[in-house]
C-alpha cells in the first residue's frame, strides 16, 4: 500500500503518456487542412481564370474567321454590283444560292445574309449582314446588323426524375 502511494506521489502531473502525440496529431491535422484548402481554392480560381481566357480567345478566333468570310462575301457583292447594278439583288441571290456561303433572306425590302461561326463547344457567333440598297452604298454594300454570341445547342429544360420505372 505504502509503495503504491509513493509511486503515485512521484508521477508527473499534467503530462501523461500520449498527450504530446495527441497535441501533435491535432496540430498537424489542422495545418494540413488549411494548406489543402488554400491550394484547392487557389487552383479553382486559376482554372476559372484560364477558362475565361480561353473563352475570350475562342471569341476572337471566331471573329477572325467571320471577318474572313465577310471579306469573301463583300468581294462577291462588289464584283456583282460592278457587273450588273440594275439587277443587283437578283444576281446576289442567285450567286449566294450557288456558293452557299451564307443564308439569305430576300423577302423583305432590305435583304439580309447570315452565317454562323462555331465558338467553343456550346456557342456560335451569328453574323447578319443587311444589304444596303443601290444609291445608299457610301459606307459599303452591307451593314452589320448582328455580331452576336448565341448558344449553338438548345437548352433542355427537362428536370424530371425517373423515380420508378414500371
Amino acid at each position: 500500500m505504502k509503495a503504491k502511494n509513493n509511486s503515485r506521489k512521484h508521477s508527473i502531473p499534467v503530462i501523461n503518456t500520449g498527450s504530446v502525440s495527441l497535441l501533435m496529431i491535432f496540430i498537424v491535422l489542422c495545418i494540413s487542412m488549411f494548406a489543402a484548402l488554400s491550394v484547392s481554392g487557389a487552383l479553382t480560381e486559376y482554372r476559372y481564370s484560364q477558362k475565361i481566357a480561353q473563352h475570350n480567345q475562342d471569341y476572337y478566333t471566331a471573329s477572325d474567321t467571320a471577318v474572313k468570310r465577310l471579306k469573301d462575301i463583300d468581294q462577291l457583292l462588289h464584283d456583282i454590283y460592278l457587273q450588273d447594278p440594275e439587277h443587283y439583288y437578283d444576281a446576289v441571290e442567285k450567286q449566294l444560292a450557288m456558293t452557299a456561303s451564307a443564308e439569305t433572306d430576300f423577302s423583305s425590302e432590305e435583304p439580309s445574309l447570315s452565317y454562323e461561326v462555331p465558338l467553343g463547344d456550346a456557342q456560335a457567333l451569328k453574323v447578319v449582314l443587311t444589304l444596303n440598297p443601290p444609291g445608299q452604298m457610301e459606307t459599303g454594300y452591307y451593314r452589320i446588323t448582328s455580331w452576336q454570341e448565341i448558344p449553338s445547342s438548345t437548352w433542355n429544360g427537362d428536370d424530371s426524375l425517373n423515380l420508378m420505372t414500371f
Binding site: 463583300d74 452604298m137 459606307t139
Partner: peptide, 10 residues
C-alpha cells in the same frame, strides 16, 4: 490576334 476589314464601296 485578329483581322480588321474595311468594306468595298462602288
Amino acid at each position: 490576334e485578329g483581322t480588321v476589314y474595311q468594306p468595298y464601296t462602288p
